[in-house]
Simulated assay, not measured.
Amino acid sequence: MTPSSANAATGTPPGHRQRRHDPDRRERLIDVALAVIAEHGVAGTSHRRVAAAAEVPLGSMTYHFAGMDELLEAAFTRLAEHAADAFDQAMMQARTPVEAVEAIVGLITGTVLNRREAMVATYELYSLAARRPEIRTITNAWMARSRRALERHFEPDTALMLDALIEGLTIHRALSLKPMPVSTVREAVQRIVAS
């Protein structure tokens, strides 16, 4: 079938390409943007680079996102929501205080919060939030969800301390050449819970 006969069959005027049906394009662009941020950093992320990685026309970026700020906010919100969902899931599965402690140890030492791409993107989020207070709404919402999940098992003050410990130990283990052993992580969590 020639392009002109294809146009006739679909009712598309001659000389116009039919637009590919891609209803989830905005969501896919957000996911691709996170991968680009993890690979190139915020400074190296552009509409052009994301469009190329997603294999879409550059115009799709400006159609879906008013500017880079909107794209970054959408990408980092997605990152925070995925991490918070995984955190919620881990804490919901715990039925006892002992299981809750083990869930926390698993979050710190396992792969849920420690996938390389997600970790690198998270550090980019932290760096941007440190410079731009409006981005802290994303990190604040993320921390609030984490604390609510912990409060299923612990008092609010304990949940606050555990949230900070999880954040700090996750970073420490990711960056250390000799990560803290799981037994030491468990002891740190148990000390806070017992206090």
Rank of each mutant, 00 (worst) to 15 (best):
L79K: 05
I30Y: 05
P181I: 03
L29W: 03
A74F: 02
A43D: 13
D163L: 11
H21E: 09
Q190N: 12
P133M: 08
S183M: 07
P156L: 03
G59P: 06
T158V: 14
A54K: 09
L150H: 02
A38S: 15
L125D: 08
T77H: 03
M143D: 14
P156K: 02
L169K: 10
D69Q: 13
H153R: 05
Y63W: 13
V193W: 05
R20M: 10
P14K: 08
S146Y: 09
A6C: 02
N7G: 03
G106H: 03
P179I: 10
Q93I: 02
E102I: 05
R95G: 11
H47Q: 05
D22F: 12
I171D: 14
V32Q: 08
E81S: 02
G106E: 07
H64L: 06
A8W: 13
A90F: 00
A100I: 06
T10A: 13
A100G: 07
K178Q: 14
A174P: 01
T111M: 11
V36C: 09
E81N: 07
Y123P: 00
R95F: 02
E39A: 15
S5K: 11
R116H: 14
L175W: 06
G168A: 13
D22M: 04
L150I: 02
T111N: 11
T96Q: 10
S195N: 11
F76M: 12
V36W: 09
P181G: 09
Y63Q: 09
A66S: 13
Y126C: 07
A164D: 11
E27Q: 14
F65E: 02
L72Y: 06
P181F: 09
V42R: 13
H16S: 06
M161H: 12
P179T: 10
R17Y: 08
V42P: 01
N114W: 02
D69E: 15
L128N: 04
T139Q: 03
V182Y: 00
E102V: 04
T170H: 07
A66K: 13
I192T: 08
H47I: 00
R17N: 08
G67L: 03
S5I: 09
T111Y: 01
N7R: 12
A194R: 13
L58N: 08
R148C: 01
M119A: 13
A118I: 01
G11S: 05
T109Y: 03
A66P: 01
E187I: 06
T184F: 10
P13M: 06
S4R: 12
A94Q: 03
M68G: 14
L29T: 02
R132T: 14
N140C: 05
A164F: 14
L79H: 04
E155V: 10
M119V: 15
S127V: 07
P133V: 11
T96A: 09
H153K: 05
V42S: 03
A86M: 07
G106P: 00
L150R: 01
A90R: 13
R25F: 00
E55I: 03
P3N: 06
A164P: 00
R132W: 07
S46M: 06
R136K: 14
V182W: 00
D88Q: 04
